[in-house]
């Protein structure tokens, strides 16, 4: 079902956990984003789709603190925020799972889960920088158990895991730290059929924990399978927003992405 873009209060009155208004981004003379609106709600999977060059990656990079927008505002929980680095976004509870697995292959799953946020021992040893490996390992195992991710071994480097399991570690890490939003940039791009199915299952379980998930994907079948809401970007603008209630088809999405439905989309371009 296509939604009216004019009124933002259509979503059962609950405010979006993440909201972007009129985001513009220039790279020199290139206008990558021309005033994009975007919103994501807690406990929902919002898919962001669009053809190459539509501005998906740029928008996600802005929302996750990698780029600064040329203009426009971002709200987290209704409060206006401004990110100058990914660390600022992390501090607001926004995490990103990257397409190309941001994991250290030579390290254990627990070391990866706590990468950059290592827990130190209490007291003097902690002040000297000594790591609390026992707690980190325990918390990691708990996080894996909560999301029903099974790993062969908690000790060996994750290079010995399968691609899908490595992706699971990356996803579980973002969940462990995300308080409000998780961005997933093509999380299944590098995976086989079964691993993709299991990853989508994992994404649903994460949605059910109450965070907002923003899923960027080229795969329309994946999108229609898991997304609650689909936002379509084209040429740096949001062109349509669909509620995935079974009435939306792949043809609808592709039509919106490529501009085949332009006459309908006109009204949003203004």
């Amino acid at each position: 079902m296509r939604q009216d873009m004019g009124a933002s209060g259509v979503r059962q009155g609950n405010a979006p956990i993440l909201e972007a208004r009129g985001i513009v981004k220039h790279f020199g003379h290139v206008q990558a984003l021309q005033g994009v609106d975007f919103e994501a709600h807690a406990g929902e999977i919002t898919a962001m789709i669009g053809d190459n060059g539509a501005g998906k990656s740029t928008l996600v990079k802005i929302l996750s603190g990698v780029f600064k927008p040329t203009s426009g505002t971002i709200f987290v929980n209704g409060r206006e925020v401004s990110f100058s680095s990914p660390a600022d976004a992390h501090a607001q509870g926004l995490e990103t799972v990257y397409q190309d697995l941001s994991v250290a292959q030579d390290l254990s799953p627990a070391a990866n889960m706590f990468m950059g946020r290592e827990k130190k021992l209490p007291g003097l040893l902690g002040k000297l920088g000594f790591l609390d490996n026992v707690t980190m390992r325990r918390d990691s195992v708990a996080a894996f158990e909560r999301l029903k991710v099974s790993l062969k071994d908690m000790e060996t480097p994750i290079s010995s895991l399968s691609g899908g399991q490595r992706q699971s570690v990356a996803i579980c890490r973002s969940i462990m730290w995300a308080k409000s939003v998780v961005f997933m940039d093509e999380p299944t791009a590098a995976l086989g059929v079964l691993q993709t199915a299991r990853t989508l299952e994992l994404i649903r379980r994460i949605r059910d924990t109450g965070v907002a998930i923003v899923l960027i994907s080229h795969n329309m079948r994946d999108v229609l399978e898991v997304a609650d809401v689909v936002e379509v970007l084209r040429l740096g603008r949001r062109i349509a927003r669909y509620k995935n209630d079974g009435t939306t088809s792949v043809q609808d999405l592709v039509g919106a992405m490529t501009g085949a439905l332009d006459p309908v989309a006109e009204e949003f371009a203004a």
Binding site: Y98, A104, Q105, D106, L107, A111, M115
Partner: peptide, 17 residues
């Protein structure tokens, strides 16, 4: 630990802050 991470995947290290 950071020494290992930087050697293993500097980009991941950067993204992890």
């Amino acid at each position: 630990r950071h020494t290992y991470i930087v050697g293993s995947n500097p980009e991941a290290a950067r993204r992890a802050g």
